[in-house]
């Protein structure tokens, strides 16, 4: 196996900066449920850069139910000090720039963000945000067929990823980024580009 980190900037159009993203929401329905928290970290040449990260708790997502509070562990005070949804999304778009996006069940997060942007009247931004993403929930089982993991928590356990906290957006984004690191290290050098991962995901979905 070639050491992935010796590789310099990858040659593909999207550049060496990728971002791992995760959202916490009040439920599963993009039309009616709200975004509670946005967390993301940049991965540059395969290395997670903590200084290049984004975290927003959304203040105007309505009152969290007790259930949500327990699940996400977001306190009322934290929410009170948070951003408005529009500020949060602006910050996210500015931070992402044109970087490709990595997530776990990424379609869910992307759809939530596009829906929120649409409601705020930013149709173009919504469309732009839906470009260039990959889903490790699909890719990871393709790369590690012997590991019977389904959820992000399963993968974290299976690989002993160094992030224990769950259901906080940034922690889950970090776990996703670590899963990506393990996947990249397993692949031959020529298959480590974003385009190659997109192709791998498409093939997997066809099966």
């Amino acid at each position: 196996m070639l050491p992935f980190l010796r590789r310099r900037a990858s040659p593909e159009v999207s550049g060496p900066r990728w971002i791992a993203l995760d959202l916490e929401t009040t439920g599963l329905e993009p039309k009616s449920d709200r975004i509670v928290e946005i967390g993301g970290v940049a991965i540059i040449d395969g290395v997670i850069d903590l200084a290049d990260s984004l975290h927003r708790v959304i203040a105007d997502s309505g009152r969290l139910t007790a259930e949500n509070r327990v699940l996400h562990g977001i306190s009322a005070a934290e929410q009170y000090d948070g951003s408005t949804l529009s500020e949060g999304l602006d910050a996210l778009i500015a931070w992402r720039q044109s970087a490709p996006l990595v997530g776990f069940h990424t379609r869910f997060d992307v759809t939530f963000i596009a829906a929120a942007l649409g409601r705020l009247g930013s149709k173009d931004a919504a469309q732009a945000f839906e470009r260039d993403f990959i889903d490790l929930a699909v890719i990871a089982p393709a790369v590690f067929p012997d590991i019977p993991a389904r959820s992000l928590k399963d993968w974290s356990r299976a690989f002993g990823l160094p992030v224990r906290k769950q259901h906080r957006a940034t922690a889950d984004a970090l776990a996703t980024a670590h899963l990506l690191q393990r996947i990249l290290a397993r692949l031959p050098a020529e298959e480590r580009s974003f385009a190659a991962l997109q192709a791998l995901e498409r093939r997997r979905r066809w099966l």
Binding site: L50, S53, L54, R168
Partner: peptide, 14 residues
């Protein structure tokens, strides 16, 4: 500067 949310998971560990 790293956000607290990004550093905290590692602090738990360390």
């Amino acid at each position: 500067m790293a956000t607290a949310a990004a550093v905290e998971p590692y602090l738990d560990l360390l």
